[in-house]
């Protein structure tokens, strides 16, 4: 299996109707890093994630290089991705896992892997139920479990703990930190700065489509690299 990391972005710009939505001249993610992507709503975090995963067309994917490859099915088969609509709500819980696992596994191996993933997400008793009946926390646990089920090299998560209760958030955090501990690279979009501090070794601040601060997490929070980062850490609005 070919390597997908490091990830590097060069001259990535996205515009809509002449308005720049994303402008990232040069940015890298190294293998084994865990990076928090923070910033106000509308900063372009999710858009960046969509560009990285190849969900944007118009040639944007040419600006993205996963160890030399443009994003596509081959790269994505090595990545675990959780987007904002991460599940197939018309299928059962286990069918959602099967759908992801079918790319690499079959038969008993697939069933065993699915059972293990469900157990880790504390969803074993809900395997046969429709994903629609899950609570928000259960849905996110399932989505993260699905993203992790094939032991990906890289995890790309878009607000996996948003609006979750404490116990679900803890479960999700445990799943993610477990994956990081076993070597997965992490890019985590979050508004939870405490989570960012706990999980990530590097923090990136986005604002108006641009990366305006990028530093080791400790540095970022203890002595913010610029005034905007300082304001954001203090909880003020960014101008």
């Amino acid at each position: 299996m070919s390597e997908v990391l490091p990830l590097s972005v060069r001259s990535l710009t996205v515009q809509r109707g002449g308005k720049p939505l994303l402008n990232v001249p040069d940015w890298q993610l190294q293998r084994g890093e865990s990076v928090a992507l923070i910033g106000p709503n509308g900063a372009g975090k999710s858009l960046l994630l969509r560009a990285l995963t190849g969900l944007l067309d118009n040639g944007v994917e040419q600006a993205v290089s996963w160890a030399g490859q443009t994003p596509g099915p081959a790269v994505m088969s090595r990545c675990g991705v959780v987007m904002q609509q991460p599940l197939m709500l018309r299928r059962s819980v286990e069918a959602n896992l099967y759908f992801a696992l079918e790319r690499a596994l079959a038969g008993d191996a697939l069933k065993a892997q699915a059972a293990q993933a469900l157990h880790a997400a504390e969803l074993a008793d809900k395997a046969a139920q429709s994903a629609r009946v899950l609570s928000g926390g259960e849905r996110m646990r399932l989505a993260v479990a699905r993203a992790l089920a094939l032991s990906p090299d890289c995890l790309l998560l878009d607000e996996p703990t948003a609006s979750l209760d404490h116990s679900s958030a803890r479960n999700v955090e445990a799943l993610v930190s477990g994956a990081c501990a076993s070597g997965a690279t992490l890019l985590l979009i979050t508004h939870d700065l405490a989570l960012a501090r706990r999980l990530c070794s590097r923090t990136v601040l986005m604002h108006r489509g641009e990366i305006i601060a990028d530093a080791a997490t400790d540095t970022f929070f203890d002595s913010p690299p610029n005034s905007q980062a300082e304001a954001f850490v203090r909880g003020e609005y960014l101008e």
Binding site: G54, L55, P73, M76, M83, Q85, M88, R103
Partner: peptide
């Protein structure tokens, strides 16, 4: 309707 729900997943899974 369904595709707006599934689009990203289907595309990511190639």
């Amino acid at each position: 309707e369904l595709h707006s729900e599934y689009r990203e997943q289907l595309q990511l899974f190639g």
